[in-house]
């Protein structure tokens, strides 16, 4: 007898979900001994269940790690007052003080060292080597790239930044897997002195090994060898940042 006629989908689901009482469970187990069709059906259902579990979103997609409890109203008022006073003082500062070049204050010693080393040079040139897909580390590199890109306006000095990704870092520029697509698109549209470059050798290795064609985020350029590009830039005197 076909299992389709005797056992409903709901019942088999309840079996694999551990929702049956011992009697019902025993009934299915007994039938399983002589029914290959039922065994196949259950195996497929179990595999499907495992696939769904495996597709569970990763926790690293959770942007805020903690719930924000509302402050009491009194502190709301105090915060509002503080913001108002701060805004007034800031406005007053810009009214009273003469317009001078905006100071560059960064809490990043590597960047500060790079900026200082270019003090007497007409142009700031930095190559950023992305060799890992570690989300936090990549965010730091993208922050550094953005800081540098902004200097163009702040210092009135030409700035060129190349972000070169290879190996595990290539994921950062992949259309299908990057966690930084939106950020890269924003940076690319906002700053024309940032250049994103992917390593073709890594792309070819993925194609060869896994028969997977790598598509890059629109606007990301590619070059034969990411390592060669980084080496060349360093020889040309570009500053170097990496993870």
């Amino acid at each position: 007898m076909s299992t389709n006629e005797t056992l409903s989908d709901e019942l088999l689901n309840a079996f694999i979900d551990g929702e049956l009482d011992p009697t019902e469970r025993g009934m299915i187990l007994a039938q399983l001994e002589n029914d290959n069709e039922l065994a196949g059906r259950l195996n497929e259902s179990r595999y499907l269940k495992e696939l769904v579990l495996a597709a569970k979103p990763a926790d690293n997609k959770i942007t805020n790690k903690h719930v924000k409890f509302p402050a009491n109203k009194r502190s709301h008022y105090l915060s509002a007052a503080a913001i108002l006073i701060l805004s007034l003082l800031t406005g007053l500062y810009f009214l009273v003080m003469p317009v001078t070049q905006e100071p560059i204050v960064l809490a990043d010693s590597k960047l500060n060292a790079i900026i200082e080393s270019h003090a007497n040079k007409p142009e700031i040139k930095v190559v950023i080597h992305i060799t890992s897909n570690d989300q936090q580390a990549v965010n730091v590199l993208l922050d550094q790239a953005e800081h540098l890109a902004r200097l163009n306006h702040k210092l009135g000095k030409a700035v060129r930044v190349e972000l070169v990704a290879n190996g595990k870092g290539l994921t950062v520029f992949r259309q299908d897997r990057s966690l930084h697509k939106a950020r890269i698109n924003t940076l690319r549209n906002k700053y024309d002195n940032l250049l994103f470059i992917a390593c073709e050798q890594t792309m070819q290795r993925i194609l060869k090994t896994h028969n997977k064609h790598v598509s890059l985020i629109p606007g990301v350029a590619s070059i034969k060898s990411g390592n060669d590009e980084v080496t060349l830039r360093r020889k040309q005197g570009w500053s170097y940042l990496t993870i």
Binding site: A54, A55, P57, A58, D134, K168, T171, R177, L179, K212
Partner: peptide
């Protein structure tokens, strides 16, 4: 789509591509 969510597991792009591809299909189906 669930496709936009990062996949669990090692980040190496050259590892587990087949598995990732299966999970991508599963997420798309969900």
């Amino acid at each position: 789509s669930l496709d936009d969510n990062p996949l669990p597991g090692p980040d190496d792009p050259e590892n587990n591509i087949d598995q990732q591809s299966i999970l991508t299909r599963v997420r798309r189906a969900i």
